[in-house]
Nucleic acid binder design. Structure first.
Length: 433
RNA sequence: GCCCUGGUAGUGUAGUGGUCUAUCAUGCGAGCCUGUCGAGCUCGCGACCCGGAUUCAAAUUCCGGCCGGGGCGCCA
């Protein structure tokens, strides 16, 4: 047995008993006749204290190990006020499981910060840092919340193809790849598939989906491979029903994240759970507000980064963090978006502190209108044949949204670079690790 | 796609034409030290991205390449 206890699971009742711990050597402080070894495991760190006089052989072995080597140690757990955990372990048996090469390409607890590029090149070490693990523990918690909430609302989790034949649903560049004798593409989103599923009777589906986007952007808010909660629901009366699910989803994710008290402490972050319902503001009003602040935006335009931020400031002054922007101009939304009147649509965005984190709409379910809109967006209905087919044999009214997980985490944890929110980011130039 | 910006020991940096035999920190190695927790002290190790050009002289200037960072557009 390599481990009987994790560092943080040791309690007073374990004192004066023999326990076994395992992990990475974070630091060795050799004072001469006594040495302190800091051992790190997934829950935190603990201290091994070894006396030269008492066990010279073990002392030599332990103090000569390199940092980040992996060991398992059996020893008596002693209460000690001088140690941060309140206890220390006096090793009796040592098993060296893996010796780390020195010097490390990246120090886990070094006093000098490394460039993000260096960190990503050595991500497996970078992720040993408690702060980085905290991000992914919180990420896990919010994903659990997604499943829990959506399952409670009768949604079915699905998995749609990521290799597709149709080149684009518009809006972004896609990755091209060889599929035997054919040309194929990586899916930019599950949009067309989850809509097709609305014709099946599954009624409510969601997917934790990969998005692949070949845009050559180089910013801290973009990835070429990202994840999202994608959802679609049938038999809706209007987009408000979709927004209702979305705001409850976000609320549940936020709430579940707030239970990760230890992680927030590690990250030195505070969290307050937002109140429901979120504000709704129509696009026209957004334009008014922005024009009052002399932003120079004209009706029909998409907001753009600066305007999004400005709006975030305006809303923040009103004490609003989360808000839906509704009734977008039809021309600024994708072809599958349901029109509302002549120039408006049933499309909406959800913004948090000035950053768009989700966007959705009621979709068009009438195949004739859909074909018209495809043409109006300068796309060819022929390229969408298998998609359109699903609308010809009984398609109920429906709607849904896509919700970027990394963007969400950025806002949740006040992280400035989206690459921090994904284990192995893919950006304009990074393909490894 | 457009624009700005950078590349010096394992890591992070100083250095803008001439004792640069390249700074400092961290790290690594050796030694001393019985209560460390950013341990301390002594000694040592280790670097100018690649190619070409200018020059008496290039880490430093110019050109090309490779590899980064960031802003906008677009989006999540």
């Amino acid at each position: 047995m390599y481990r009987s206890h994790y560092s943080k699971d040791v309690t007073k009742k374990d004192y004066n008993k023999s326990i076994t711990v395992a992990g990475w050597i974070e630091d060795i402080r050799n004072i001469g006749s006594i040495a302190f070894i800091i051992l790190r495991d997934k829950r935190g760190t603990l201290q091994l204290t070894v006396l030269k006089k008492k066990n010279p052989e073990l002392f030599e072995k332990l103090t000569n190990l390199s940092r980040e080597s992996v060991i398992s140690v059996k020893g008596v757990c002693k209460e000690n006020e001088k140690v941060r955990n309140g206890y220390e372990i006096l090793p009796e048996m040592l098993e060296i499981l893996s010796v780390a090469k020195a010097p490390l390409p990246l120090g886990v607890i070094d006093k000098v910060e490394a460039d993000f590029d260096t960190r990503l090149d050595n991500r497996f070490i970078d992720l040993r840092k408690q702060k980085n693990q905290a991000i992914f523990n919180i990420r896990n918690a919010v994903i659990v919340a997604v499943h829990k909430y959506l399952q409670s609302q009768d949604f079915v989790e699905v998995h749609t193809p990521k290799i597709t034949a149709s080149s684009s649903e518009g809006g972004t560049d896609v990755f091209k790849l060889k599929y035997f004798e054919k040309e194929a593409f990586l899916a930019q989103s599950p949009q067309l598939y989850k809509q097709s599923l609305m014709a099946t009777g599954l009624d409510r589906v969601y997917e934790i989906a990969w998005y692949f986007r070949a845009e050559e952007h180089n910013t801290r808010r973009h990835l070429n491979e990202s994840t999202a909660v994608d959802l679609e629901m049938a038999f809706i009366n209007d987009e408000e029903e979709v927004m209702n699910i979305l705001e409850n989803l976000v609320y549940n994710m936020w709430k579940k994240a707030s239970d990760c008290k230890n992680e927030f402490k590690i990250l030195s972050q505070k969290i307050s759970v937002p109140e429901l319902p979120f504000a709704r503001i129509v696009y026209d009003e957004v334009v008014d507000k922005l024009q009052q602040r002399k932003s120079g935006i004209e009706w029909g335009q998409d907001l753009g980064t600066d305007n999004e931020r400005l709006l975030g400031d305006i809303m923040n002054k009103e004490g609003i963090e989360f808000y839906f922007i509704t009734k977008y101009p039809l021309e600024s939304k994708p072809f599958y978006t349901m029109p509302k009147g002549g120039k408006y649509s049933r499309g909406f965005d959800l913004a948090c502190k000035g950053v768009e984190i989700a966007s959705g709409s009621q979709r068009i379910h009438d195949v004739k209108l859909l074909e018209e809109r495809i043409k109006a967006c300068d796309l060819n209905p022929k390229d969408f044949e298998s998609y359109l087919k699903a609308f010809k044999y009984g398609m109920p009214p429906h709607g849904g949204f896509g919700f970027g997980i990394e963007r969400f985490l950025m806002e949740l944890l006040d992280i400035k670079n989206i690459r921090e929110c994904i284990l192995f980011p893919r950006d304009r130039t990074r393909l490894t690790p």
